[in-house]
Design a protein around this nucleic acid. Structure first.
Lengths: 89, 89
DNA sequence: TTAATTTGTTACCGTACGGGAACATTTTGT
DNA sequence: ACAAAATGTTCCCGTACGGTAACAAATTAA
């Protein structure tokens, strides 16, 4: 779950820069980040003002999770979201 | 340097790497990308199997838009999503 | 192993998403 | 300026989100 940079001997985490093609992938990213920080679903739900049900659903890739809450969860985990155009200039 | 959408065979403009801190910001990103590709809301709705209402709501930053549909819209626009840990590297 | 913690799942239920369609407003093009 | 297109907004309404609570299953710790 945790990765130590062999050169700088620094914990850089499992999700340094992870693409999110679908909800299942996002769920795994959230779960990894949460566990990496030693949080339970209950903890994370409390941090984001949601319920444990929502965290569980999200981590399992529920398609219909609401966007605002999802962004709140990512922010609580210190995960920044980026959108990148496939067609670079 | 000019790029052509392989599916719709259109020039889709310049690149961007936008952070997405909230739904309002995501809405603007979607709108900009859509217009850059010369699509109407109706076009984009058709491409993603949603309704024009959903696109309008999304572009205006609706907090409760459903995640799966949002990802579908981003994919249709050729926008890849990334999550980056704030304490990586 | 056993017991405790964590997580998955279900039910109940208030609330609202979002499709379609219609209308109002804004933007665009000539 | 005008007309057409695009977008914002509202309605109706079937469907379902997600909070809470409860229980089952799974994971972890001792």
């Amino acid at each position: 779950m945790c990765y130590i940079d062999p050169v700088r001997e620094q914990n850089v985490g499992a999700t340094m820069d992870h693409q999110i093609p679908n909800t299942k992938e996002l769920g795994m990213i959230v779960r990894d980040a949460r566990k990496q920080q030693g949080l339970t679903q209950e903890d994370l739900a409390g941090l984001t003002g949601t319920g444990r049900r929502f965290i569980s659903d999200l981590e399992q890739g529920k398609e219909t999770a609401e966007l605002g809450k999802v962004l709140a969860v990512l922010a609580s985990l210190g995960l920044a979201l980026f959108a990148q155009s496939k067609w670079s200039k």
